[in-house]
């Protein structure tokens, strides 16, 4: 089952692309909506509707959609997705370029916020270990935001069938399914509270995948229309930096720290697996 085995007619399956076109058009026509909550607002973007509507049309999720598109045809969306994000990344880049001088001004904040994502362990790891009584799954689940480079690292160190592997895959799957929506809602909500510099909110959008960055910064751009270009540029630059440095931060800082923190929390005195030391 190599990549070569994907037949062209499956890649160009008209049902899949037609569903995407129709749903996208409907979602765009509905447009941006918002719901007020206390002093803040939840923002809903077309990308949100497109995601939800297509969940209903996914034959792996709802029974009736089997009649609209087969599971086999829908499965081709996975490799397509990897490519589909690229035009958006290109558009994103053209927002970063013109703003490069401004981004350079925020240099220190931009670089060090990459380390901010270590914050995830301080919150998630104790809860995973102490409250949910998770084992070494907690290392895989909480050492990073579980995108592709992070999976590659865990796979390299422990193997994907290990407990650490199951942990990282679990969060990866959740991120794939709901991460984009959650990022968009969270950013939109924090934006309307007025607690943070919008540029800080935008930079933090870059911590995850391309589509998370898109959803997150798209929401911010809607919340602060006057700063739209600047915010998109900051988020895009941050995501570029994450792509370039994320793996190294994971290897040299996040994973060793996760190992250490896990041992502290679980009181595990045993030595780490041989593979960790052998590397």
């Amino acid at each position: 089952m190599t990549t070569k085995s994907i037949p062209i007619n499956l890649l160009l399956n008209w049902r899949l692309h037609l569903i995407v076109v129709i749903i996208s058009a409907i979602s765009e026509l509905i447009g941006i909506q918002s719901i007020p909550i206390a002093n803040a607002k939840l923002l809903f973007l077309p990308l949100f509707y497109a995601f939800i509507l297509c969940l209903f049309l996914n034959p792996n999720i709802t029974k009736f959609s089997d009649k609209i598109i087969t599971k086999k045809s829908a499965s081709i969306a996975a490799p397509i997705l990897i490519v589909a994000i690229l035009p958006f990344i290109a558009k994103f880049g053209t927002l970063i370029g013109p703003a490069l001088p401004k981004i350079a001004d925020a240099g220190a904040a931009m670089i060090f916020q990459e380390l901010g994502n270590l914050g995830t362990m301080l919150i998630a790891m104790p809860i995973a270990v102490l409250i949910f009584k998770m084992g070494r799954e907690a290392i895989g689940a909480t050492y990073s935001i579980a995108r592709e480079p992070n999976i590659a690292l865990i796979s390299d160190r422990y193997g994907l069938k290990s407990k650490e592997g199951i942990g990282v895959m679990g969060v990866y799957v959740m991120g794939t399914m709901f991460g984009t929506l959650y990022f968009s809602l969270m950013a939109g909500f924090l934006a309307t509270t007025g607690w943070f510099d919008p540029r800080a909110l935008a930079m933090a959008c870059g911590v995850g995948s391309g589509s998370m960055t898109a959803a997150c910064s798209g929401t911010l751009a809607t919340a602060f229309p006057a700063m739209k270009d600047e915010l998109l540029a900051f988020a895009g630059a941050s995501n570029l930096l994450t792509n370039a440095t994320g793996l190294y931060i994971a290897i040299f800082i996040a994973l060793p720290f996760a190992e250490w923190f896990y041992k502290k929390l679980s009181g595990e005195a045993k030595s780490t697996p041989l593979t960790t030391e052998a590397k």
Partner: peptide, 28 residues
């Protein structure tokens, strides 16, 4: 294993995002 992983995932996403926001906000 939906609920447990979902809860941890939300913490991971929130922790990562808010962690980065705090650092960026402090340094801007």
């Amino acid at each position: 294993s939906g609920l447990k992983i979902a809860a941890i995932s939300i913490l991971v996403f929130t922790g990562t995002y808010v962690g980065s926001v705090f650092v960026a906000d402090a340094l801007l």
